[in-house]
């Protein structure tokens, strides 16, 4: 029982990070039907921004995470403007290939920079480490608490933006029908840019939280993190914001449990769960099946 709870804590801690990253995939897919392959690399950039902010500027946790959200977000808007927007009316997969190109660039350009390079770097302690023993005997540490609190706060903020603000309403309108939204006076380009901005900000935050938990960072860390978060987004129902959150949690918990059972299983387990869920709910747990109009 104590061990189960302990695993659950680890699972939730990892799951909320997957959820944060998954949100970016799901929002971009929801709005322009693009699987943004470069999204995982923004997670890595977020981690490196926080690393340099702490090492060079001596930034504390709030400042580090703020910069780690802001810089990938601006970068993501620039990428959308330069590499995706010109292809919006072209075959859908052209944009996918540019996304792959951007991703290859984002992984390899920092590798060649002398002050980043290909090696692993230890991530600094942004908050003091402290263990708390719960009455049941399970142990909860300060990083886990911060992870969960920050993630939940960001997800609540996002939900508020999507459902309670004018921009959020415009985002939902654009994802429903771009042409109609445009006729209603919504600046579609701007809303898409906002979507990329928000998604990348969450990815950056996810990168910092992940690096605090597993304090070794390198330029390729975004690939697998991104893939798992993407799977989480699909599992929850791609295009659905609550779906991404749920999917992230499920992925995190399953991965931790499977790894605890047998370490070789950890990686493949998420994919098996994904396929099982898609067999029974093809649109993901919270996704909606679209009816084709003839």
């Amino acid at each position: 029982m104590r061990e189960t709870l302990q695993l659950l804590i680890y699972g939730v801690q990892l799951g909320v990070i997957y959820a944060l990253i998954a949100l970016g995939y799901t929002m971009v897919y929801g709005i322009i039907n693009l699987i943004n392959f470069a999204h995982g690399d923004l997670v890595m950039i977020g981690a490196f921004v926080a690393y340099f902010a702490a090492e060079l500027l001596g930034a504390n946790f709030p400042l580090a995470i703020f910069l780690a959200m802001l810089i990938p977000a601006c970068l993501s808007v620039a990428i959308e403007r330069l590499a995706y927007r010109p292809l919006r009316d072209k075959p859908r997969l052209s944009a996918l290939i540019t996304a792959i190109g951007v991703s290859i660039f984002l992984e390899n350009f920092p590798r060649m920079l002398p002050f980043i390079g290909p090696n692993y770097r230890p991530f600094p302690m942004l908050i003091p480490f402290k263990n708390f023993t719960l009455p049941t005997g399970a142990v909860l540490n300060s990083i886990q608490i911060v992870n969960i609190l920050v993630s939940v706060a960001l997800m609540v903020a996002l939900t508020y933006i999507v459902h309670r603000t004018k921009v959020g309403r415009a985002m939902r309108a654009v994802s429903f029908n771009k042409d109609a939204a445009s006729l209603m006076g919504i600046n579609v380009n701007r809303i898409i840019a906002v979507t990329f901005f928000l998604g990348a900000a969450l990815a950056g935050a996810g990168g910092v939280l992940y690096s605090m938990t597993y304090p070794m960072i390198d330029v390729l860390m975004g690939i697998w993190l991104g893939t798992k978060a993407f799977i989480a987004a699909v599992l929850g129902g791609i295009g659905s914001v609550p779906g991404a959150m749920l999917g992230g949690l499920i992925m995190g918990i399953c991965e931790v449990v499977a790894t605890a059972l047998y370490s070789e299983l950890g990686y493949g387990s998420g994919f098996v769960i994904l396929i099982l869920i898609l067999l029974f709910r093809p649109a993901g747990l919270l996704g909606k099946v679209k009816i084709e109009k003839v």
Binding site: I97, G101, I104, F109
Partner: peptide
């Protein structure tokens, strides 16, 4: 690989 990534983006654009 840096060049490869950029080339891919330009090719598609």
């Amino acid at each position: 690989l840096v060049i490869y990534g950029i080339a891919l983006v330009f090719l598609m654009l």
